[in-house]
Design a binder for these strands. Structure first.
Lengths: 154, 154
DNA sequence: GGGCTAAATGTTATATTATAACGTTCCGTC
DNA sequence: GACGGAACGTTATAATATAACATTTAGCCC
């Protein structure tokens, strides 16, 4: 939900996310195959959003459709989010909860934090209603500086 | 700011936008060259966000960098916005005012409406502060159904 | 106007992101 | 173990975007 210490031990986060994904897939009757699991793990290992071709390279011998299919699956089941601005992907911190993606993206270190703020969604919904528009999905991507990088600025 | 009647006469809108762009460029000491002007006009003529390669084709004999350079100029001077979700561009309804892009995108007809709602920006800024994050730019893109297309649904 | 300079444009090549199409393998079910 | 559908492999290509360098143009000073 917020920015982790950049030096924290990320291993347990990844392990926890994979476990949560396993459970979510069981719950949904979806198959978290080896490839899908590996892609999810790679996404989580990266603290910054990671692109499809970076994943592809990390996977070793694989062609683009392999990675895109895995990403499609993970997106469909709410296990990752896509960052439109970056054409890249991040692990979802709250699988199982329906929610729009709201992100804070540090332009210095690349770190991403997921928000889950109803007041943002409400503000958009209200503004949309004024135009008679019905919102079905919402992208919110704020670029700026994370706490750690603000300190490092001159 | 809102969705126009899909059958309205768009010509005057385009003409007005071009005039406003001329003035904004004068004010800024920027050169609205022939290519830039033509690209801006093409962007405005399209009701829906239009992609770089569609513009390229409409321009006739031109190579990608020509169009991308014109788009870069228009973006830099706030005359158009980029829709990240669509990799496409729309005319800015309020050149001269600094403002983040907030858009309503109809998934049926493709129409785009620009919002300019402070409460959305405020909500994001407040949520970001809770994480100690400093927002410098903001993308808000809501997908859904415009008034006209809601009527046409079963 | 002539010459200078910086900006703008032209041109070619290539990088990056994403999908189409079709064949094969794997896995649960009967 | 045969069937059927999902998952995966493979090849090709579409769609989006930029790098690098040559040439032209426009503004400016004298």
């Amino acid at each position: 939900m917020s920015f982790p210490n950049p030096h924290h031990d990320h291993g347990p986060c990844v392990a926890h996310a994979l476990e949560a994904a396993e459970e979510e897939c069981r719950r949904r009757g979806a198959r978290l195959t080896d490839i899908r699991r590996r892609v999810l793990e790679l996404v989580w290992r990266s603290h910054a959003p990671i692109g499809a071709y970076a994943l592809l390279e990390a996977l070793g011998k694989a062609a683009p459709p392999t990675v895109y299919r895995a990403l499609d699956f993970l997106l469909a089941h709410g296990l990752i989010h896509r960052i439109e601005k970056l054409n890249a992907f991040v692990g979802c911190a709250h699988p199982g909860h329906a929610h729009p993606g709201q992100f804070l993206l540090c332009r210095q270190c690349g770190a991403a934090a997921e928000l889950n703020d109803d007041s943002i969604e409400q503000a958009v919904r209200v503004a949309a209603e004024h135009s008679g528009f019905l919102v079905t999905s919402l992208v919110v991507e704020a670029e700026g500086l994370c706490p750690a990088c603000q300190g490092q600025q001159a």
